[in-house]
Computed example of a mutant assay.
Amino acid sequence: MIERIIDKRGHDLGGGLIVGRVLPFHARRMVGPYIFFDHLGPAELPPGVPKDLDVRPHPHIGLATVTYLYDGAMTHRDSVGVTQEIRPGEVNWMISGSGITHSERFDHARAYGATMHGIQAWVALPTETEESAPSFHHHAGEDLPTWAEGGISGRLIAGAIDGMQSAVPVHSPQFYMHWQMEAGAHSAISDEYSERAVYCATGALEVDGRPLRAGQMAILSAGGRVPVRAEIPSTVMVVGGEPIGERFMLWNFVSSSKDRLLQAREDWIQGRMKLPDVDNGEFIPFPENRTVE
């Protein structure tokens, strides 16, 4: 039932902030519509942490970004006028559509110190909504169904599964869950979707009888419920959905069209993409030698 196991790879976002990149992977670019999956931290940020660690304003097209934290806090500012702090158990869901810019700042950690730990993912939009108007959505509390049973505390971050529906505005069939598992707890991943994956953020798991360690994602084959057991207390993300077709990437841009990516690159280089009004003093230049993937 496990097709492949992917290990996270260290990636510098700039300024020394290292994340563990899981998707895209050369042998598996997407799981359902999920085309990007980064594990942030855990990282101890002391009070007064330099602003070099912040993610300065940068652009996106053709996707929705998903920020979900286990610990810490992050401040989002974007070009549609939203400023929103995100805290553990909440969801920032930003639809880039035809184009948006945003920054992600560690204002809380700079003031008080914090352990930063979470996941950032990108969801590719279906062709018919790739050029939709950009928007931002923050969800918490009852918007995100939760449950607790058999040593597992769960939260549905986005999509629908097992009779539950998140309030996050998704655009294609998908699901995204957080499980907090006690040692010995076990469950099974539903077979509702043709593409599924399970990521061990902390701890150690047994997935369909095979070990899965912290920092590894197991890509599952279609069909059949897949058993998951926690060997020790573990933080687990389960994600999947239905494929939406081939997607290309160029830096922070995702599209079904290579020409559209090249246009977005030129728009950013020429300063045609609006920066956040309250965070427009700096930005991330387009990196050299980036090509369409």
Rank of each mutant, 00 (worst) to 15 (best):
A160M: 10
A230K: 01
L262V: 07
H11G: 05
L13M: 09
G141D: 11
H138R: 15
P243N: 09
Y176A: 11
L45W: 00
G41T: 02
A183Y: 02
T291D: 13
E242L: 12
L69Q: 00
E266D: 15
A43Q: 13
D143T: 08
Y112S: 13
I152Y: 06
K274E: 11
R29N: 09
A27H: 14
Y68T: 06
G163A: 08
R229M: 10
V236R: 08
G224P: 07
R247E: 06
I152T: 05
S79N: 03
I284M: 15
P233Q: 10
P33A: 02
I86S: 04
R155E: 02
P173R: 12
F106E: 00
W268H: 03
F36M: 14
D71M: 13
A201M: 12
A43F: 11
W179G: 06
Q270C: 06
L144R: 07
H108W: 13
N289A: 14
V91Q: 00
S234E: 00
S187W: 12
S103R: 04
E142Q: 14
H60I: 06
H139N: 08
P126E: 01
A197F: 01
W268A: 02
I95E: 04
V170M: 01
F253N: 04
I95N: 08
H186F: 11
E85F: 12
P46W: 07
E90C: 05
G240C: 11
L212A: 07
D38I: 00
R4V: 00
L125N: 05
W93H: 03
V239D: 01
H58V: 07
H102Y: 08
K274M: 10
I2F: 08
H186P: 10
A124Y: 05
N280A: 14
A111T: 04
D7E: 14
T146L: 11
P276G: 12
F248P: 02
T291A: 14
D162S: 15
A148E: 15
H139G: 02
G163W: 02
H11V: 11
S190Y: 04
K258P: 08
A183Q: 03
V168D: 07
V168I: 13
I119L: 08
L63A: 05
S234M: 02
G271Y: 00
Y68A: 03
M116W: 05
E131P: 11
L144C: 06
E142V: 13
R210N: 13
L261A: 04
F175W: 10
E293R: 15
T101R: 01
L23C: 11
